[in-house]
Design a protein around this nucleic acid. Structure first.
Lengths: 215, 215
DNA sequence: TGCCAATGTGGCAGTATCTGCCATAATGGC
DNA sequence: GCCATTATGGCAGATACTGCCACATTGGCA
């Protein structure tokens, strides 16, 4: 059996019981332990010299089980960014089908990035930690972009349906998504860079600048 | 010894002799044969079910030699896109260090895409063929984006030096590059999609639309 | 012309990634 | 407390990729 998507699982959990259930909780915990192990080992010895066996052993699971949670070792370090994409998907209902395509997509991303603008929040801390690693490791950046590309297809389909067949110019929609994604990435990257250099950095402000520049 | 970069080789060829030399010519030919084999096999049976051994055997070289030309089997199919990036690098001298950052980057990309706007040119035909394959194969798209990410770093450094330390806001520069890249990709994708559907498509016109939308 | 350093190639061993299959154990609804 | 579902581990196997060595070819130079 293939690993189920987060969507499928969420639906099942919702149908079967209000509480997540023991199995689901254990699964999320195992997933988190693998991610923790991956992040720690990557930070210590780099991605290249860390094997899947290492990560699995540190997390207390077999290598075979590792691959039931993540397709590659790089993905194991990137659930935060995956969460970001899921948050975007979650914000879809707030999109106005009558509004300007570019504006609506821009607003959707701006809304999603909000929880990360508080430097002290756990989400921001986690994002910072992972983003630091990505800046040093080209292979992680590749994996992240790869994830983004895949998610873009889903988002494109969803937004296309939302705006309807007439107003949904595929090229413009794709461009709007890519540009908003580039803005978010550039802002995050700059934010992390400043914090790494020991300087004060406000993600909300930086994101505002990037947004303005892209206009 | 590691495989030398195109830049290194070009420099050496220029230093040693005016004509490319037999070795260099043979090398380029072998490279082209591997690419042809990869494109043919990928088109026939898909990327997943094509092995490096298959490609190497079809091209008449050993698998070991294959990896001296390309790091992965996906890369073997993407030299056209690599050429595009090199063409951008070649256009760097035309960038005005005093001009507006966004405008100059935009102009640089527009200039580079010109040779592909003639549907009948070999460059356009090749680009079309590879782009069709990329549309069907997510792994190729990933590999292409991965290449783009790596090239972006080089371009960023070059443009940063060009504009000088004062005017080179890293975030704005990166955003300008990413946006121009997204515009080019969206235009190419739309162009290929229309041609595949049997419709007439003018890349110059489509690119103009995408460019206008991004503004 | 003939020698030699540089270069390209192939083969082989070895490591790492990733998947299919099966057996086993734990869970949770009935 | 029984049973279908599900999570896990282990194993075999295919494929990707690298380091190393030997051999052949090339091209400059005496």
């Amino acid at each position: 059996m293939k690993v189920k998507t987060a969507e499928t699982r969420a639906t099942e959990a919702h149908q079967s019981a209000v509480s997540p259930g023991l199995r689901e909780r254990r699964r999320l915990q195992t997933r988190a332990e693998i991610t923790d192990a991956a992040l720690r080992l990557f930070a210590e010895g780099g991605v290249a010299s860390t094997t899947v066996d290492d990560i699995a052993a540190t997390a207390g699971v077999s290598a075979r089980t590792f691959f039931r949670y993540f397709a590659t070792k790089e993905e194991a370090a990137l659930p935060v960014h995956q969460d970001f994409h899921e948050a975007i998907a979650a914000g879809l209902p707030s999109v106005d089908p009558q509004g300007d395509v570019r504006d609506e997509v821009d607003r959707l991303y701006a809304l999603t990035i909000l929880p990360y603008t508080d430097n002290d929040s756990p989400a921001a801390q986690r994002m910072l930690q992972v983003s630091q690693l990505i800046r040093k490791e080209p292979s992680l950046r590749s994996a992240q972009v790869r994830q983004t590309v895949e998610r873009t297809e889903d988002l494109l389909a969803a937004l296309s349906a939302k705006f309807g067949p007439e107003r949904a110019d595929q090229m413009e929609l794709r461009l709007a998504i890519d540009i908003s994604g580039a803005v978010a990435r550039a802002a995050l990257d700059t934010w992390v860079g400043l914090l790494e250099a020991g300087k004060a950095a406000d993600l909300a402000e930086i994101y505002g600048q990037a947004r303005a520049f892209a206009r």
